[in-house]
Design a protein around this nucleic acid. Structure first.
Lengths: 126, 126
DNA sequence: TTAACTGCAAATCTTTTGCACAATC
DNA sequence: GATTGTGCAAAAGATTTGCAGTTAA
């Protein structure tokens, strides 16, 4: 793989944001600095970055994929009210053991998506 | 809500299958007995059935949604080789406690999707 | 120079929707 | 008879892809 200006920009953007942006949001942001950037390129580069493990994809049923660079220990909550994705401190060990304990099948990866209200919205609703 | 022949057919089809079919697969099957059945209706009815809790939606990133009627204790594995969805015996209690233990946020629902190889494919690959 | 990367637009795939008609209550 | 549900086709939304041109090695 060789160097690409666009791919670097995209990686830097994902690294610098904490709001789990979509491909479209990343593209819109970056067009301020790279006006010709195309959405197709953003998708292509994000796929590459996910493959090489520099970026993580967060899929939410019925929504556009989000991307983040927090490769650490956490899973995500999708807020039904403000539609934000927030990180969730869930014991990776416990989850890992739970998933890996399944007999017969070969687990390679897993995804926990939690729905509900983020702390801000939960406070508001009481 | 009033009775509908199509909705009943769709529910019966989902109940009778164990292979987590997509809306398209359900539609194709049912056309043998109801040739005019439209895909739009299948989607509409499946959404209704999910809302009233008779059917469960299984979302897999990048794939069409699957539907099943197993409302019991289990989560799903998506096989990367044969692309089948199989049920997974995971301790619902442990998972529930794990998810519900998150502070501040209000968890309403959650989804564990596991990727890897189903038992058949795992055996083949060794 | 040549293979990988990009922009652009068109294509693909899944799901939803508008509307006129049909079925249910 | 009033609504709800359906079929059909078109639309919408997200993502991929083909191709011709550009760029990094």
């Amino acid at each position: 793989m060789r160097y690409s200006h666009q791919r670097e920009l995209i990686l830097k953007e994902v690294l610098s944001r904490k709001d789990h942006p979509t491909a479209e949001q990343i593209c819109t942001s970056l067009r301020e600095v790279c006006p010709r950037l195309s959405l197709g390129t953003v998708y292509r580069d994000l796929n590459t970055l996910v493959e090489i493990g520099k970026v993580r994809r967060v899929s939410i049923p019925g929504e556009a994929d989000r991307f983040d660079a927090e490769l650490g220990v956490h899973q995500n909550l999708f807020c039904r009210k403000c539609r934000k994705v927030v990180s969730l401190p869930i014991s990776e060990d416990t989850l890992h053991n739970l998933v890996m304990s399944c007999p017969e099948v070969k687990v390679e990866n897993y995804y926990l998506t939690v729905f509900g209200l983020c702390s801000d919205c939960a406070r508001q609703e009481g």
